[in-house]
Nucleic acid binder design. Structure first.
Lengths: 226, 226
DNA sequence: TCAAAAGTGTTAATAGTACACCCATGA
DNA sequence: TCATGGGTGTACTATTAACACTTTTGA
């Protein structure tokens, strides 16, 4: 009987934790929650949840993100599994971390408030429970690598954005300033970053041209480097 | 009572699977086993095992590798968690994949034979069970990226190696031929790749100089690019 | 009229790529 | 003596990095 092969092995709670990146005030931010229940009530943590019987681990991460933000079809990537025996002092829980990139204009304010979640500057994080800071650091590094070679950064911006916004985003991701002319030269080479007719006047009197990312065009070209 | 927070959630079998790379006959090979038990008896698979109560997921991967090869202190890196509901048709199992780089001169032949394991050229793999081919492809890509920016390739070679061996290794990793002089120029710039007094005469009458990788020196410099 | 952000090219330095011959040795 | 793999340097090309001024406009 085939079950015998499995049955002598232990089972574990499996959780997912979401590192939710947003771009606010020229900086990368994370959406964190102040836990309202044990263990570690009152401390800060990533949004998480347990994998259920009928869902894949990836789907659990999507569900957890949806529960907090109301958002679907969000760019998400797995960071990895975190399986230290004592990582959660309450019970043995193996957690799979995912990072998500969201546009801070889009999420559901009421849901976020209900969960007691708040944005925190990624360079001024409060103390996090368990191994969440390790997850964050790995996610940040992974995202940085990915953002330099694939156009995932646009998920953090409105559909239309100025080149200054885009540059500030990449400066936040890389943690270093970039040369404006070199940056714009590279953007100009990417034909799928298209100029619109619209301008944005919120940050200057002159107004800045708004651009947009053409996903279909990118899929034909598939060249990206910032 | 804090257990209530966990108790209404399901538990899962958690497995680890090892993508074991070796460098044989100028090609990358994987150590695969022909399963001697259900499910999928007679089919080829990665070496795997279940995470136990008292061990971390990382430790489970190390244990599984040790069980098959007799090797410890091997370079291993996590590939990720694979959590599709139906990935194992026998039972719901969430698996965390790891890749390992071993020197094919070192492993324990008897253990490998006992497990009915064999080397297979990575470009001519037999059909693998479940989602193992996905794990292999992800591991290969990850390893390729890593090998280009960190000196992990040396784990696949004997402690002393010729530059021709090293070049053939990287050609196998990248899947493309490299220019001999450019390759050697780059190696020469890495001061922690040290020439020894010994030569290897197995592949030429003239004999080729043997080199070695000085780990401590690398840790001071931390620059690598091949 | 002036402050504040938008926009725009050229040059120098560096890194990467292409390429062909002599050397040492054992069979 | 010759077949085989080991070992070496230079010129060209492409990429990246450094750098400063003019434009527009609302207050």
């Amino acid at each position: 009987m085939k079950k015998n092969y499995y049955i002598r092995n232990p089972k574990f709670y499996v959780a997912v934790d979401c590192i939710i990146f947003g771009f606010k005030d020229k900086r990368l931010n994370l959406l964190l929650l102040k836990r309202m229940f044990e263990p570690s009530k009152g401390k800060w943590s990533l949004m998480g949840g347990f994998v259920q019987k009928d869902e894949s681990v990836d789907d659990a991460a999507k569900r957890v993100l949806l529960e907090l933000t109301g958002l679907e079809d969000v760019y998400m990537e797995q960071v990895g599994a975190f399986g230290d025996v004592e990582r959660d002092p309450g019970e043995r829980v193996i957690s799979v971390a995912y990072y998500a990139l969201i546009n801070v204009d889009d999420y559901d304010r009421q849901l976020v408030e209900k969960h007691n979640a708040h944005w925190a500057d990624i360079d001024e994080l409060p103390e996090l429970i368990f191994d969440h800071i390790t997850m964050v650091n790995m996610a940040r590094e992974l995202m940085k690598q990915k953002a330099g070679s694939q156009p995932i950064g646009f998920s953090l911006l409105p559909k239309q954005f100025t080149l200054t916004q885009l540059q500030m985003l990449y400066e936040a991701i890389y943690g270093e300033t970039l040369d404006k002319r070199n940056f714009r030269k590279r953007v100009a080479e990417m034909d799928y970053i298209e100029m619109t007719d619209a301008t944005d006047k919120t940050s200057s009197k002159r107004g800045a041209r708004l651009f947009t990312m053409n996903e279909e065009k990118y899929l034909q070209i598939r060249k990206f480097r910032i």
